[in-house]
Every structure is written in C-alpha cells, then in structure tokens.
C-alpha cells in the first residue's frame, strides 16, 4: 500500500472581507491501510482533507506527501498515482459516452487510438458496462454513472483511489453494488461517507469535526464517536 503523509497540513480560505479563515487545522497523520473512511458532518472539512490528497487543494501550511511525492512540488506525478472521484459522477464525466470518457482517461497511457479503444472496451466489459458503451452518459442510471466514474479512474491504474462521498446519490441497490465493487479493488481507497455501514467496511476511520480530526481509529469506535458528536450537535436532542 502507498504511504500517505499529512505533515501539519492546514488550509485557509479568504472570507467575504478578505481575511483568512481556517477550514482545516494542522493535520498530522500517516495512512497506510487499504481501506480508510472519513466521516463527519457537512462542512466539517472532509472534502478539503480528501482534496489535499491529489493536489486539488494545496495546504496553506505544512505538507501532504504520497509515497514521498509532495503534492505541492510534484502535483502531476501525484495525480498519476492518486485518482479522485467526486460525489456527483457527472462532475467528472466530460465526454458524451462512456466509451469516449474512458478513452479520454487512456490518452495518458496509450498513444494509439485502436489500442485505447480495445482497452476501454475491456475495462467497460470488466464492470458490466459494455452494453452502455455508446449511450449518452445522461441516459445512465445513478449507479451506472458512479460505476463508470470509477472505471475512468481505474483506467490509468492508480495506486490510490480517493472518493468523496461516493454513495451519497445512490439508492440502496446501487449502494450495495458500490460496496461490492469497492471491496474487490486492489487499490488503496480513501473515501468520505455519510453511509455508516460503508464506513464500517474500512480498516481505519477518521472522524472530522470543525476542521480537525477528533477521532482516528477502529471503525466501530469511530462510528460511535461520530454518532455521539452528531447527537450533541442536534438542537432537538434531550
């Protein structure tokens, strides 16, 4: 597995008045497990934490390294080994059909068009999407789109997959499908989720709250901690 290091990584954004506001406080940790989940409320800093992993967001302070590569100075190299998936798969599918989108990913690894086509076909077939290869991406179901988004990431054989709430827009059947697919991947997967069952599949769970990591450990304890935290924040709680 890859070694992902957060070395005092913090992120500030400018507020409406132009003053810096901290959205992630200095995070220091090392991730080497194969399945890592990140849970937390909306706006807690989960997405920022994940986006640091492939350089979509650069730390204001500290550093983030993947297998020794700094996201600030080796961003392109990091993105070659870390694939990033958005909550809404339509955000990352930019070509009209599944085949063309997978071929777009493959442009980085295969110069020859016929080779790209063959590889795209094989990848789509592996994930049961072959029959949808030439349909419009807008005609796919939510589950099929999420699966396709995964295929476009896997096409370039990343070592690490980072998925930002991959199950949020899925119905129960497609969530189960996603769980099965994720559990079968050889890659290291770091994902954020509100689906606590999915979080329990991980080996390590980080609980993020108010821009900081408030718990880092085993899944069941982490989920309990998150539930307690959410309960304490609920204004209707006794």
């Amino acid at each position: 597995m890859s070694r992902i290091e957060f070395d005092g990584a913090g992120v500030d954004v400018l507020d409406g008045a132009g003053a810096p506001r901290e959205i992630l406080s200095g995070v220091s940790l090392t991730l080497t497990e194969q399945r890592i989940a990140v849970v937390g409320a909306n706006g807690s800093g989960k997405s920022t934490l994940l986006r640091l992993l492939n350089g979509l967001v650069l730390p204001t302070r500290g550093a983030v390294r993947v297998d020794g590569l700094d996201t600030r100075t080796a961003g392109a190299k990091v993105r070659r080994i870390v694939g990033f998936g958005f909550t809404d798969p339509l955000s990352q599918l930019v070509m009209p059909t599944p085949r063309e989108d997978v071929e777009l990913s493959l442009r980085r690894v295969h110069r020859d068009r016929k080779e790209r086509r063959r590889t795209a076909q094989a990848l789509l077939a592996n994930f049961g999407l072959e029959r949808l290869a030439d349909q419009s991406i807008y005609e796919l179901s939510g589950g099929e789109r999420q699966l396709l988004a995964l295929v476009t990431l896997l096409a370039v054989e990343p070592r690490v997959l980072v998925l930002d709430e991959p199950s949020t827009l899925l119905d129960l059947r497609n969530r189960e499908l996603l769980r099965r697919v994720l559990s079968g991947l050889a890659q290291q997967v770091v994902f954020s989720t509100h689906d606590l069952e999915l979080a329990l599949d991980a080996e390590r769970v980080l609980v993020v709250d108010d821009g900081g990591i408030v718990f880092d450990g085993a899944p069941h304890e982490a989920v309990d901690r998150y539930r307690t935290l959410a309960g304490a924040r609920d204004p209707g709680a006794p």
Binding site: A74, K77, S91, L93, V156
Partner: peptide
C-alpha cells in the same frame, strides 16, 4: 466544474517531469 474534473484526473497536466523542473 469541468476544470476541476480535468485537474482531478490529471488531464491537461503538463508532463510530470515538469514538476521537478518547476520545483
């Protein structure tokens, strides 16, 4: 959104070796 998606997938990135030259 499209720009972010391309960046996330490393599409349109300059050659990875350029990172080293840049740093």
């Amino acid at each position: 959104q499209t720009g972010e998606a391309l960046a996330a997938r490393g599409l349109g990135d300059a050659d990875a070796d350029a990172d080293e030259e840049a740093s």
